[in-house]
Nucleic acid binder design. Sequence first.
DNA 1: CGGCGATGTGACAGAATTGTGACAAACCCC
DNA 2: GGGGTTTGTCACAATTCTGTCACATCGCCG
Lengths: 242, 242
Amino acid sequence: MSKARIVVVEDEPAIRRGVCDALRMTGYEVVEATDGAIGLQEAQCGGIDLVLLDLMLPKMNGFQVLAELRRTCPTRPVIILTAKTSEDDRVRGLKMGADDYIGKPFSARELLARVEAVLRRTYKPADEVNLVHLGRARIDLQRREVHWSDHERGDLSETEAAVLKYLVSNRERAVSREELLGRVWGIGTAGLETRAVDMHIARLRAKLKDPNGTELPECIVTVRSHGYMAGPGFSFPKKALV
Amino acid sequence: MSKARIVVVEDEPAIRRGVCDALRMTGYEVVEATDGAIGLQEAQCGGIDLVLLDLMLPKMNGFQVLAELRRTCPTRPVIILTAKTSEDDRVRGLKMGADDYIGKPFSARELLARVEAVLRRTYKPADEVNLVHLGRARIDLQRREVHWSDHERGDLSETEAAVLKYLVSNRERAVSREELLGRVWGIGTAGLETRAVDMHIARLRAKLKDPNGTELPECIVTVRSHGYMAGPGFSFPKKALV
DNA sequence: CGGCGATGTGACAGAATTGTGACAAACCCC
DNA sequence: GGGGTTTGTCACAATTCTGTCACATCGCCG
């Protein structure tokens, strides 16, 4: 869950393939987009950590994409990646809010180094949590088990555990449904309509209800018109060194 | 926290002069250093927001400076600025933790654009108006919560939070209803008549009233026949260390 | 094949949010 | 104080969002 998620917007198949392969081999999760309009949609999704943007694209050019992205996601990191190497273009891209500007041809090494440099500033991996307490419940997210006592225990499904883990790893921060869909389901979701997230939250809440009826501290809080948040009810046992 | 403070480490007088002048003219505060050892000292000082670093320097070369700086100030922003333009050097510099790498010769415009891009990420992030204090209230605009004490808390709706955020971001400046409608609602309003803004202000004022009855410092002031203004009652907490 | 658990969907009721019209209160300038 | 404006607030209706139910689907396993 600690891998950064990168959108690559590039219409030239050979280059896109090369860039994406290099990124994947390095351990990033990559989403590919082949024109400006799709690229913009993907780049706006929740849970995206970096956008690599070509300038000459079908449908919308890179500057248009960047402008629109800046309007909706003002701080999303962007690296422009292009054959347009005139100084005017470079300055224009940077002024519009790009974080770096790499001219083609570029080497994979330099690309990766620059990607890493930008992510170093902007990407904060949530520390991965595997054990959580909630009231008297002991939750093992690795084994997907909830222990209430020696006798009472329950199981979480794979997706339920993944959702809970993501929420808890980002505790005290409101997480949007889109971000969850991106990070847990692994799908870029531009305007997709689904109740899947709500459904899993409901199932989680049911499974996290104390079987002896005691009221629990608030656990999964709804943030209306946005998403959900792991509440302050969760606590963390001393973290074992891994 | 107004002007960013930049250290320029460069032994060649003509270039140093040019770079420093350009930066000063743009409004930055500049500290000049003529060799690696001095540069390192200056760069380690408190209150430095960015270091521009040449690689070929007397006393200590740029890589040595960078390595030592990373040891003592791991996150201080650095842009390498050099005639060594081999890819090996670029990758090496970036891997060592530089934020950007500009090869000579470079133009003042591009230099400034890149300086700005790096500072945008590292220097007083502009969108950090997410935590506000008002009397004993702690307002989290991202989570849309108002905390009065451990037990007393309230929620803000999406629009309420957006309105408050806009007002607070423009504290001490009167904001017209039209401006709010434009920025928060996203609608252009030629002579549109609506009480929506007033209504939300009223609801905000209600939610920002101390539950134990204490009078609060004035928070949202009415500016007659114009709009509203976030008063001096709001304050911004020290940003937590990351 | 048939059962089983997990998962996603459509539907719908209930809840929260939001904008409006109406009207009283406050304000401003003479 | 009076007349014209502007603002605060109430009740309510319209709209949007969430919680949840029943059900179809899918993969898995015997």
